[in-house]
């Protein structure tokens, strides 16, 4: 399941999560982000129970984009124990993303 996260619950759902969390920073005007959406859906199913998958709308949560220095989307950030351990930029295939995530978990 994919959770929509915003400024108010980011700490609780991402930073304090026991599981690793992959956060998809996206915006409605971004074509490549829309193309990535079905890939994220598939990842959520495959990683169920192991990695939480969240989405952050960068338009509505500008403080989060600025905190994590996001100036280019789509951008995925993997958080483990509250720390950003890996940034994945641009459109990537499911296998590419899995390869990168699997190194950390």
């Amino acid at each position: 399941m994919i959770m929509d996260v915003d400024e108010s619950d980011f700490s609780q759902k991402v930073l304090l999560s026991c599981n690793p969390v992959l956060v998809d920073f996206w915006a409605p005007w971004c074509g490549p982000c829309k193309m990535l959406a079905p890939v994220i859906d598939e990842l959520a199913v495959e990683y169920a129970g192991k990695v939480d998958i969240c989405k952050v709308n960068t338009d509505e949560n500008m403080s989060l984009s600025s905190k994590f220095q996001i100036v280019s989307i789509p951008c995925l950030i993997l958080f483990i124990n509250g720390l950003p351990v890996q940034k994945i930029l641009g459109f990537r295939s499911k296998n590419e993303i899995k390869k990168i995530v699997d190194i950390h978990i």
Binding site: A27, W29, C30, G31, P32, C33, T58, D59, S65, I70, V71, S72, I73, P74
Partner: peptide, 9 residues
């Protein structure tokens, strides 16, 4: 990609 990134500027 301006469409992707311009709004961040």
């Amino acid at each position: 990609c301006a469409v992707c990134d311009a709004p961040f500027y």
